[in-house]
Each structure stands twice: as C-alpha cells, then as structure tokens.
Amino acid sequence: MVNLTLARALTDGLRAAMERDPKVLVMGEDVGKLGGVFRVTDGLQKDFGEQRVLDTPLSESGIIGTAVGLAIRGFRPVCEIQFDGFVFPGFDQIVSQLAKMRFRSQGKVPMPVVVRIPFGGGIGAVEHHSESPESLFAHVAGLKVVACSNPSDAFWMIQQAIACDDPVLFFEPKRRYWEKGEVDPDATPPPLFSSKVLRAGTSVTIACYGPLVRTCLDAATAAQADGLDLEVIDLRTLSPLDLGPVFESVRCTGRLVVVSEAPSEASVTAEVAARVQQECFYSLEAPVLRVTGFDTPYPPSKCEDDYLPDLDRVLDGVDRALAW
C-alpha cells in the first residue's frame, strides 16, 4: 500500500502499462522533457525514450489523427490533450475516425487508443481551461468514456483503459491531481466499466463522477450531522453507464440527485435521470433532481465558485428531493 497523489498514481499506472507492452506510446504536447503541464508523464521519456514518449507538434487534430494511424499500424497510443477546452481541434478525428474505424472495418481494424483529458474547473484558470466536455463524447457511438476520482482508481483505470481494445476518452479531475490517497498495487481492481458505491446510505442516493465525488462525500459527512444517511455512487464509467448499482440504490432510497460540473442540458446527468425513471418508476418518491454547472459557457474564474456545484448546492438538492 502506498500513499500517492492522483497525478502520481496516473504516472505509475502509465509506467506499468508501458513496461507491460512495448506497443504502448505516450504522445502529446509537452509530455516528454517537461513531463506534461500537470507532470502526469514526469520521467517517462527519460526511461522509455523519445520514440515511446513523444513531444508532439502543437496540434490536437495531429495528435489524434496520427494516433489513429499508429493504431492501424499496431501501436497502442495514449494521447494527452493538455486541457479540456483544447480537445476540439481533435474532435473531428475522434468522431470521424477513432470512433468509427472498428465498425466501418467490421472489427478488422481495432482502435486501442486512450485520450487523456484533464477536465473541470476550480483552479482559477483562464478561458478554455476549466470545461467539462464529457457528454459530447458519451453521445458518440464507438467511444468509451470514463472519469476517475481518486488515486487508486486513477492507477488502475488508466491501465485498464490502455488494455482495452476500444478507444477510451479518459477524463482526469484536474483540481484533484494533488489530493492523496492509498493505492494498493497488489489489489485486484474492479472492472473498468463499472460504477462503485463509495458510501452506503438509505436517505437519498447521490450519483456523481470525477472532481465532484470528493464534494459529494463531504456533503454526505455534513448531512450525517443532520441525521441524514446519503448513499454516494461514483459512476466512474460515463459510456457505457453502469447503472445497476444506482437502480438498486434508488429502489431503496426512492430519491436520486445526480451531480456534475457539466451543463445539464443533453448531458450525462440527463441520461442517468432518463434511465432511472424508466427502470425505477414505481420506486421513486421524488423526481430525479440534478445539481450541475449552469447552461452557460464556463465563466471567468472569479465567478467559478458560484458556477461549480459545491457542498451547499449538493445538500440543497438533497433537501429538495426529501421535501418533494
């Protein structure tokens, strides 16, 4: 058992995957000598060389487009997109080539590519550095989308994503990079595409992912003082969703609050709400409520504390569900 930051857990996971399979490449802007702007790839180029850890030209379409070509050649590229808001130059290659190649070739050309994207706000950054674009990718058939929330999951999920023969969009909660947690390298991790109950409870179910998992756990602790027993589920996988544990929980609590930083309209949280009302219609004591970022562009950072769901807004959602 070791105590690691989330960023360091990712580094160790990447290192383990690269040691296991010589076809694994890491590529992106500043991932080599600098070790990435968040230092997630720190030391990898020194140990694996410039042909396995590529400091690429500054072009996101190039990163994804060449990764597609490398995957056709038999490599397993792990691409880093420096910030969430910079993925869009690569969006065409992700949607048009990466997502569809397996289907188009009827399985003859698999696309084992991982696209790592630090996402979410709360770091006081300028425009385009704090976005939550995961729903855009969850909407695309052929892609898998996951989000880690803690060091242990980060360590295992990145290795599982690299081992997966499908393209995986791997969202990393950038404001949690420096939070520490226990990682057991000898443990047997749960499957990649599974959600996890982090805190059992009976009052209200909270489904969340990525950076807000910590917030929701804190909210649950705070609610306990008021005699409320919240169940917190980390969705972990956004496409495919693994909603079995959520259905089970809602059948017990009758109330669900879905929490995310992303805008609410046509989003992952909307999908969770739709599926839960379909599966748990007679168990629901209140409509499924959502606590999310607003349906606006990400605001200037002095406003982000108001934009981002915090402990109070999560608890407000819980109160509204209970008061229905």
Partner: peptide
C-alpha cells in the same frame, strides 16, 4: 481488410487520411 491489402478504408471526411497516413508512417 486494410491490414492484409495495404489499402486503408475509403476516407470520406476530406483530408482526415493525411494525418492517419502520417501516423502510420511514423510507426513504420
């Protein structure tokens, strides 16, 4: 089969294949 024929599938989005080709050649 693109891999056995050495001929990738037709690419209809204009220009996408130039990056895919560059990546494949990097692999070579």
């Amino acid at each position: 089969d693109p891999l056995t024929t050495g001929f990738n599938l037709y690419t209809i989005v204009i220009g996408n294949q130039c990056l895919n080709a560059a990546g494949y050649a990097m692999g070579q």
